[in-house]
Structures are given as C-alpha cells and as structure tokens.
Design a protein around this nucleic acid. Sequence first.
DNA 1: TGAATTGTTATCGT
DNA 2: AACGATAACAATTC
Length: 266
Amino acid sequence: MPELPEVETIVRRLRPALQGRRIVGFSSRWRKHAHPSVEAVRGGIVGRTVQHLGRRGKWIVFDLAPAGHMLVHLRMSGRLEWADGHRPRHVRAWWDLEDGQRLLFCDARKFGRIHFATQLAEVTSELGIEPLSRGFTPAVLRARLARRRGRLKPLLLDQTLIAGLGNIYVDEALHRSGLHPLLPSTALAAADIARLHGAIRAVLREAIRHEGTTIDWGYPGGGMQKRLRVYGRGGAACHTCGTPIVYLRVGQRGTHVCPCCQPAPS
DNA sequence: TGAATTGTTATCGT
DNA sequence: AACGATAACAATTC
C-alpha cells in the first residue's frame, strides 16, 4: 500500500546508510520476487556500489556504480528494514553490505518485486509524469486528461498517466478539489483541473512532510493518518461540511467521498 | 470462513 | 484497432 509519499519517506530514511556502500551479497527465499531471476539480480548487483538511492513513481531506485540499476516495488505489503537482531516476519530476501549491514525485504503477501536492469527505462519507460516535478503543471494535466476518457478516479490511479498516486491520495486529492471520482474526465473545466492539480501536489507534499500514512499492520509509523479527510472515514463527519463521508466502489476500489463537497455526476 | 486488501495484467466488449 | 471497463491474480490477515 505504500504510495508516493510513503516510498519517498522510505527512500529518505534508507539513503544515508546505503549511498556509497558496496553490495556484497543477495539472497532470496522466494524466487518470484526477483526479475528477471534471482541469479540475474545477484549477478547485476553484487560487487557494485549504491551510487544514488532515489524514487520513480512507487519504485525505489538503486543507481549502481559502475553500472546498472536495481528497482524495488513494495506493492501492498512490502517493507525494507535493517536486520538489527529483531526477528521480523515474512523475510523474503536480503542484501548484505560491505560494512556488515543487512537490509531485509519483508513481504507478507509476496506481491513485491525486485528488478535488475542495465537501463532504467527497461522498467520505468511506461510510467507517467512525476506529480511533484516541475514539469507537472495544470496545462500538462489538462493535456494528459484530454487524451483519455473515462471516470476520474481510475484515470488518476493509472500509473502511465501520473506516477505514484494510489487509492489513499487519489481519494484525498479529489475531496480537496471538490470533484467526484465518477466524473467523466471530459466533464472537467480548466478551473476544475487547475484545482485538482493543486490538490494532488498539496496532499502529496503534506504527506511527505508527515512521513506518510500509517497503514494497518503492514506499514506503521506515519503522521499523515490523522490528517486524512476522507480515506478510511466512511460514516464520519466531513471536516469541511459535517456531512457523513460515503463509502462506495469505483472500479473495484474502495472509495470515499463527501456527497456534499463532491457532487455526484448526473 | 471468507471478505478485504491493491497494483498490474489479461481479457472482454465496443 | 485501440481504448475503456471489468475480472483475475498474487497471498495473507483478521
């Protein structure tokens, strides 16, 4: 369930201990995590140094020296944590660093992925724009939406349109911009799109500032939980108008809206 | 026990 | 044919 702010938080926390360190080993207990194979990942990373730790969408990106990239996607329940004597559950793979540190990849549901690629684009070429980048402007969002049709929420969840949004922050951005998730993209005026653009950036920045959202048993520890306005608040009063938040399904996804702040399309 | 969970991909239909 | 909608899927927890 980590989305862009959670992945960004994880990257920032791990970066000091990883950058400049050489990887001396990689082991996996669950072959399906590794792509194209456990052997390819090991062969690509062992002996190489983590030159930079970054993020693209929801991918954690290890730029390696002298060459190559390792990308980790946490999907629903993946976690990266340091082995420090405690016994975390669901350890699926781990990396050993030259300084003796061991980084664990834990993943209860086994949906996470570890890729090795010589070129970054082999993994990230289909991803859409980074919503916090300079290039993401209201005009760009309008142009991207104009190329597609359909309901707003599934479009915002599409990683090829915008990279990094997930269920929580889409619901939050739609509420903050007063737009209903079922609105057809074609129904939006330029002013609606400008509001949506601002809400996406504001909610992502706020979430990063608070180190993400605490998410059930899998990913504890973020302060954004208390600041969510609709997600997980079905039946509770809207902070803006007091109307009870409604829970519905949009494209198989649990969705939260304020029926007053976000009028449904007719 | 089975409902809920989510990003990705396969498949269906227009 | 290309796109949008929908279903299936990965595996586990409560």
